[in-house]
Design a protein around this nucleic acid. Structure first.
Length: 593
RNA sequence: GCGCCGAUGGUCCAGUGGUAGGACUCGAGCUUCCCAAGCUCGCGGCCCGGGUUCAAUUCCCGGUCGGCGCACCA
């Protein structure tokens, strides 16, 4: 099936390997005319569901991203792994981890690979799996992010984004303004992401450049949940972590509300988006008999996720991840708040203003300035942060006195020490302007939590193709047909003259032009006999075909043929522009015509 | 990245130390006329580099790409 599908995809222009004229490179694909249309329709359906109907906003951020963003997000640490492979058992290990586990060295991760290889040789380190010596084995670095240089010369380092999500996070300070600081709100993006996969496989399933559709839904961790009534009847095929540990594949079928009540799914928003996702996958043509939500096992969770469910489809006996619905908590926004020079919180007003005690500082800059020079402002910021965090530091705790006395200096109760970029600065407490005041707060700054449904568009397209490919037997002949939902089919209607003579061709051309003018995606075909033309359209999933015959010339009717049943009805030419959209939109059924 | 297998028209395959053939598709024409019909004609190909050889698509080496298994998939 896969081979036939792959062949169909190539031959009919759904997708194929890119740059084949130059030998091709693994992991890159071009969507041909049919595939690009199918993909666009899938994306449009996603946009309709997760942007328009959810009332979210869509953005479009750059794919080239400066390095500091990934320092903050944590991707820089995660992708720059050093691997060493055991010659004996073939197992790959993190070279830096081997070194750190077996020696006193604690920061092997920061060493160049050659040095790590030397250390392994010098210490006669062995393979953690089989015990064979690793000395002499090369230590190799692999980057999962594509790097680039921004600007001329050495420029500044940048990376192609491994996910579109960071764009939504880095622009959060503006986006929250557009949302009028009202949680919850969602920001979505459809675009390319890049991962320099070690071994791309399986066509669109694991590509190095691929389209993602991601929604970052920002919620108040203490706020109200979604309206689960709207998805009350959705049956979720759940495959929880504990069921995966057990033998067999026991799925649990629950509604979102049941799943929450039974504690299978943690988090109302996750449950809500699982339901919306399932409905959407069904809408674009994923077979629900070959679909499930699988919970990530604890060790499988990404560095940013607290809980994650993958939507998966079954293709040829294997399961393909289509979507991850992750609880990213406040990880991303907190990280960017730490690293970036902006505010990643939303101000949440209390119902009633509160009076609270708050520790503040008002540093004497006429002292700090001369004392610390250019660092004075940073010291002042550090003092403010310290006051919020630990007001005891300002009244000379026992611990601090003890520390001071042990250093041999005169105990000083009246000073406070802060650290700025590794340097310690000591300031007399009286110069900090420290005080504890009663203030009235009308609200507080909340770091929103993020619930992220992230879809792989290419994988969805691939699944839709695989799940809708059928071979019928028609009078002993095999008929290949893609039973795509009309909404996503690349072409809505094929228009043919029964024969290309006696004016039928001209009449059919007019019909095709009129339907195009009405906004429909139309293919005109006058080549070969009529049956061949129907089969061509069947193979690319065109749901309807219109044939102009001799009767058309008399009474302005045409035959309208249904892909799945191959049934035909006669329809007035003038009605086509209304009938076809109502059929594809699901407002009418073919049988009722 | 490792191992095994493979690479010949758009697609699927056969074959050969003297540059190749079929089927399907596609195009033109005739014929038929509502579900891959028939006939005629036509377009179109040996992954790349090196070696052996008078001569390599064929044999050898290396590479690239693909499939499968392992590893990897933050």
């Amino acid at each position: 099936m896969t081979e036939q599908l792959r062949e169909l995809a190539r031959r009919r222009g759904f997708f194929f390997q890119a740059n084949e004229a130059y030998g091709g490179v693994s992991g890159f694909y071009t969507y041909g005319p049919e595939g690009a249309a199918l993909k666009r329709n899938v994306e449009d359906a996603w946009r309709d569901r997760f942007v328009t109907r959810e009332g979210n906003m869509e953005i479009d951020s750059p794919t080239v991203t400066p390095e500091p963003v990934f320092v903050a997000s944590g991707h820089l640490d995660g992708f720059d792994d050093m691997l060493v492979e055991c010659a004996e058992c073939g197992e790959s290990h993190r070279a830096d981890h081997v070194v750190e586990d077996e020696t006193d060295i604690e920061d092997a991760e920061t060493y160049p690979t050659e040095k790590v290889a030397d250390i392994i040789a010098d210490h006669d380190l062995a393979c953690p799996s089989c015990g064979a010596p690793l000395a002499g084995q090369p230590v190799e670095e692999f980057n999962l992010m594509f790097d680039t240089t921004i600007g001329p010369g050495s420029g500044q380092p940048g990376y192609l984004r491994p996910e579109t999500a960071q764009g939504m996070f880095t622009e959060f300070p503006r986006l929250k303004e557009y949302a009028r600081e009202q949680l919850p709100f969602g920001v979505a993006q459809i675009g390319a992401g890049y991962r320099n996969e070690i071994s791309p496989r399986n066509a669109l399933v694991r590509a190095r450049e691929f389209t993602m559709a991601e929604l970052e839904y920002f919620v108040d961790p203490e706020g109200e949940g979604p309206d689960l009534d709207r998805v009350a009847d959705v049956d979720l095929p759940l495959y929880p972590a504990d069921a995966q540990a057990a033998d067999g594949e026991e799925y649990v079928h629950l509604t979102p509300r049941e799943a929450l009540e039974e504690g299978v799914v943690r988090g109302e928003w996750v449950a809500y988006f699982l339901a919306r996702s399932k409905e959407w996958f069904e809408r674009v043509g994923v077979d629900m008999e070959r679909f499930r939500f699988r919970q990530h096992l604890p060790g499988e969770l990404a560095h940013y996720a607290s809980d994650c469910w993958d939507a998966e489809s079954e293709i040829d006996g294997g399961w393909v991840e289509l979507e991850g619905v992750a609880s990213r908590t406040d990880y991303d926004l907190s990280k960017h708040a730490e690293h970036a020079d902006d505010t990643f919180t939303v101000f949440k007003q209390y119902d009633e203003p509160k009076t609270v005690e708050r520790a503040t500082v008002d540093p004497d800059m006429s002292y700090l300035g001369p004392e610390f020079g250019g660092d004075a402002a940073d010291v002042a910021d550090a003092l403010e942060a310290l006051a919020e965090r630990d007001r005891a530091a300002f009244d000379g705790s026992a611990e601090q006195r003890s520390a001071d006395s042990s250093s041999g200096e005169t105990p000083r109760e009246d000073q406070v020490t802060v650290e700025v970029e590794g340097e310690e600065y000591t300031v007399p407490t009286e110069k900090t302007g420290f005080s504890v005041e009663e203030v009235t707060e009308s609200g507080r700054h909340v770091v929103p939590h993020v619930v992220e449904p992230a879809f792989g568009v290419g994988r969805a397209v691939y699944t839709v193709l695989a799940h809708n490919y059928h071979e019928d037997e028609v009078e002993g002949e095999t008929r290949s047909v893609l039973r795509l939902p009309p909404e996503v089919a690349p072409t809505t209607v094929g228009v043919f003259p029964l024969m290309d003579k006696d004016g039928l061709g001209e009449r059919a051309q007019d019909v095709a032009a009129d339907l195009r003018e009405a906004g429909l995606s139309v293919t005109y075909d006058d080549s070969g006999n009529i049956g061949r033309r129907y089969r061509r359209q069947d193979e690319v999933g065109t749901p309807y075909c219109v044939t102009v015959d001799y009767e058309s010339l008399e009474d302005d009717t045409v035959t309208l043929r249904d892909r799945d049943s191959t049934d035909q009805v006669r329809v007035d030419v003038d009605d086509l522009a209304d009938v076809l959209p109502s059929l594809t939109g699901g407002d009418r059924d073919f049988e009722d015509l």
